[in-house]
Design a protein around this nucleic acid. Structure first.
Lengths: 173, 173
DNA sequence: CTGATTTTTCAGTATTTACTGAAAACCGTG
DNA sequence: CACGGTTTTCAGTAAATACTGAAAAATCAG
């Protein structure tokens, strides 16, 4: 039945478009999120040209965002025998996706924050005025908390999906 | 000793500047992050004019970012008797800050994602082709995972700081 | 080595987001 | 209800970010 194929195409197009819009909120650019959505729901791996055509974007744009997704580890290139072009496919396992995103966010958001907090804490160490003590204490408590959250995130990412789930179930129960 | 006061000012200025730069990564605008940093490390609550002067920004800019921070719940206005102007002070408790940020991120990032995933899953329900089944399954597994993560986040935010810490300690131990 | 195909780069441009400054609205006081 | 201080709005502008398209570089088969 042809309508089924159309319904699927429609649902998928919507997913790609909306996921792209969401990407903006997440601090990821729209195109990158769209390509990710497209590849996550592609039955077969795609070439750069196919991505360009599907999303109606330029070669340069497709290229740089594909590279970025590869750098994140959210997609990978696959070689097909007898094919000179590169094909790309997405990581589809949700737990994998989660750990990749968590790792990247940690690198870009948590680690730099820790560096700043630590430096400001050091610089204000031993200042004897009440303001100095308060500032130092504030830096340390922020640092402690962020460092702690960072370690938690690492731990969880290293777990196997099943184990994390089981543990969380206990927490939610 | 005057150098101590200077050292503190220097450390604090650095914190404000760097925290602002970090804000960009977090998808928060620089000024908003700077005002937050400034107020988090202010011994006393500040007026809009003081914020403007300290960060060398316009009134409009100060105003709108202060309002945004109030909307998040990261700062609040305080009234001083005999003063007509509004003063602002930041929430300083790290656990509070964490839960506020978690709540806001959930609202802006998680909830819309869930809505999309759920809709696309519904729309592709019952399509009999292999591609249709695969798409539907992918939507559902993403939805399940995100919904689960969302519930976890709620649970943790509702905990008292001490309890969350204790639980996490067990996890890290 | 040559020529065809594919990937990469990047200057120029478009779009989005943030900021300024001044005018308008608001608000308490006399 | 008029006045001075204070907050809010917003049109215009500046800055940051993303995208295009074409040229250059790389890759590979013959």
């Amino acid at each position: 039945m042809n309508t089924e194929i159309e319904k699927l195409k429609q649902a998928r197009d919507e997913f790609v478009a909306q996921w792209g819009a969401l990407g903006t909120q997440w601090g990821i650019n729209r195109t990158m999120a769209q390509i990710h959505a497209l590849l996550m729901t592609a039955p077969e791996s795609l070439t750069t040209d196919e991505v360009m055509e599907e999303l109606e974007i330029s070669r340069g744009n497709a290229h740089s965002n594909i590279k970025e997704l590869v750098a994140w580890g959210l997609i990978r290139s696959v070689v097909k025998k007898g094919e000179r072009r590169e094909f790309f496919e997405a990581e589809k396992d949700v737990w994998q996706i989660f750990t990749i995103v968590a790792r990247e966010r940690k690198r870009r958001e948590i680690d730099p924050a820790l560096a700043i907090l630590n430096r400001c804490a050091e610089e204000s160490e031993g200042i004897a005025t009440p303001e100095g003590k308060a500032f130092h204490a504030q830096m340390r408590s922020l640092e402690d908390f962020v460092s702690f959250a960072s370690k938690m995130s690492d731990r969880i990412s290293l777990m196997k999906h099943g184990f994390a789930l089981q543990m969380a179930a206990k927490l939610l129960g």
